[in-house]
Design a protein around this nucleic acid. Structure first.
Length: 289
DNA sequence: AACCAGGGAAGAT
DNA sequence: ATCTTCCATGGT
């Protein structure tokens, strides 16, 4: 067992991140003890790493620990990257002081982008969650992982693309996937196994290139690519203008009778570039209970 | 019972 | 290129 500490440069609301992570039944969290278990794949091995908050939003300190004693540096680097501890959120807070979101950023300080734990897992999850209400969306992704994935020390690993590629559409229909969704999930996994789709390669490209390439896959539209860029890659400047949650939040803050159009939202969001992702996260946060 | 949900494809204009 | 319509389910 090893344990390593880390200090973030700026503020960081880890407790909020935990609340967000705990929305997913597949992620093992303990908000009271302030930790989350992160499933990590390391050279074909599956390792569970515990990440615990030791500080405050203003003076954040994190502890990372694992029983897996090899590859400590690689694991720590991976975790630091997932939680983006080196991103100085004070700079971003400063940026939004000159925008109409200043009050919101004052109320919800230090909201980080916590990346999904794996590129492929994230894509499957986003596809499964397309257009569904959150409750049923998590029901579906949980059934999917608990049926075809792996549980280690109480944490769930998504199935490998090779596993999903071998499934029949009916295997997912049994879990109450629609025919379309079953096709999207399995066909995309087959493309990944065939090498036709390389998520790691995509992760090195510019947003627009990813939008073009990933968006050309059947079942993956603009909303899905944007969410993948935001949550899988942790990119700073994404704004899912067509997202219902974003539109509901703006409807509330702009006191509109109806949800604003995608175009109106996109236009306004330009003022928040190059940190539109943080605007989106804070808007989402502002309508979560 | 009707409408919505943190969409997307396919068809129509 | 942009606008409808259809797809499929569970939630509220």
């Amino acid at each position: 067992m090893w344990k390593e500490y880390y200090h973030s440069p700026g503020m960081y609301d880890f407790d909020y991140s935990l609340r967000r992570l705990s929305m997913d039944p597949l992620v093992r969290t303990n908000p009271k003890e302030r930790w989350v278990d992160v499933p990590v794949r390391i050279e074909d091995e599956k390792v569970v790493v515990r990440v615990k908050a030791e500080g405050t939003t203003e003076k954040p300190v994190f502890a990372v620990m694992s029983d897996h004693d090899d590859d400590q540096d690689v694991i720590f680097e991976y975790i630091r990257n997932i939680f983006q501890w080196d991103k100085d959120l004070n700079d971003i807070h400063q940026f939004f002081q000159q925008t109409e979101l200043s009050m919101l950023f004052h109320q919800y300080q230090g909201t980080p982008i916590v990346r999904d734990f794996n590129l492929y897992d994230s894509l499957m999850k986003v596809i499964i969650h397309q257009q569904l209400n959150m409750k049923f969306a998590y029901t579906l992704s949980t059934r999917f992982v608990q049926k075809f994935g792996t549980e280690i020390d109480g944490s769930w690993f998504y199935p490998e693309p090779e596993t999903v590629a071998k499934l029949d559409y009916d295997d997912l229909r049994e879990l109450q996937f629609s025919q379309r969704k079953a096709e999207y999930v399995i066909d995309t996994s087959r493309k990944i196994v065939d090498g036709e789709l390389d998520l790691y390669k995509l992760s090195k490209l510019e947003n627009n290139e990813v939008l073009k390439e990933l968006g050309s896959v059947r079942g993956i539209g603009p909303w899905t690519v944007q969410n993948w860029l935001l949550f899988a890659l942790g990119r700073d400047d994404l704004f899912p203008a067509a997202d219902i949650g974003i539109q509901n939040a703006l409807k509330k803050w702009w006191q509109l009778d109806n949800k604003p159009s995608k175009n109106d939202v996109e236009k306004k969001a330009e003022e928040w570039s190059p940190y539109r992702s943080y605007a989106a996260l804070t808007l989402w946060r502002s309508i979560e209970d």
